[in-house]
Amino acid sequence: MKPKSSNVQNHNSFLQNKLTSEIYLQFEKIVKKNIGSKSFVACISGGPDSLALAACSKIYSEKNHTNVFYLIVDHNIRANSALEAKRVQKNLLKISAKAKILTIKKIISRSIQKNARDHRYKIMSDFCKKNKISYMLTAHHLDDQIENFYIRLSRGSGLQGLSSMKIAEKNKEKITIVRPFLSSSKKILIQVAKKIFTTFIKDPSNTNDRFLRSRIRKLKSNLEKEGLDQTRILKTIDNLNTAKEAIDFYVCYSEKKYIQTKLNNKIQIDLKLFQEQPSEISYRVIASLIKKKSKKDYPPRAKGILNLMDSVQKKNFKRVTLGGFMFNLSGKKIIMTKENRNNKEI
């Protein structure tokens, strides 16, 4: 390992700088708490925030004798995507980080950003499972938090949607996603990346008004000029998180009290869930239940869940289909079973 090839290889040089030191120490605290010395994947796009993630991951791995797998995903969307991925791979060699490129074979032509994200997480999660890795680091940052808030606000999201991303949470593949930069701004991460890497990838979709996130980014800038700045939005998100924690407590309580799973995998839901609990709690319990059992990233649309909640309380209720499941009345219980394509219970 040649010290002159990278500032990151010299821990003292990197950590003596106030800016990079603050970012790294914050990173180290979060990773130690959630991962410790276990192996993890660092998700690298080639942008400045992900390069800052790579640099911090490299130092952490050397200080704590931890294996880090640097993954670059070629989404196969732009004509030069394969070449771009190789450029990122070469850039990481500046910190002696050998990255692996994973290529998405399926052509993504609709709902590009959402489908690209879904395929990206799937291919990286598959890599993790194949290599018995339980943790994945992403470079989500403070600006992402605020942009997500505006995006979900524009879609009429409720408390659940408007709350912030978590520092650590499991995805549907049971891989724990850790986000150590959630309190750091993109501006700061760009400065960190520039101190180590001379170049980084600029994704053209970030400024393309075809995509909602790009339009929201411009709107956010205009709103800041009107006084709706970052500090106020973060305060709102923090207040929402406090309320969400209280609701989560009662949702967990209600799941234990009103739901039972039988040996034949049939799930019994006590009708008292809908009679004794506020509608918000009932709604969240059902949404969470369907999401877990379907192993999907999101529950069914609110309209469908509300229809189920309304239907089960009617005297003539017999059956409702929602999210790939059948909900049948049996005495004072709702029996939830999976349905097949022929609409038969299994």
Rank of each mutant, 00 (worst) to 15 (best):
K32W: 03
E339Q: 15
F211G: 05
S21A: 12
F14R: 02
I108F: 09
L306C: 09
T103G: 06
T207I: 11
D203Y: 06
N307M: 10
G156L: 07
N208Y: 06
I175Y: 01
S13T: 13
S125G: 09
E62L: 14
S50E: 09
R319T: 12
E226A: 12
K33D: 14
R341G: 15
S13K: 13
L102K: 06
I346W: 07
K295M: 10
E147G: 04
A168Y: 02
R217D: 03
L271Y: 12
L83S: 14
E22S: 13
I123F: 01
L92G: 04
I201P: 00
T199F: 11
I290A: 02
K257S: 07
K130S: 12
E173W: 15
L289F: 05
V68G: 06
N171S: 08
V31N: 04
G304P: 06
A139V: 02
D49E: 10
I281F: 02
L137V: 02
N12C: 08
E276Y: 04
K63L: 14
E173T: 02
A116P: 04
R155E: 15
S183K: 14
G46S: 07
T176N: 09
L212P: 11
T242K: 08
K244S: 08
A246L: 10
I305P: 03
S13Q: 12
D229L: 00
Y60D: 05
L223Y: 06
Q89A: 05
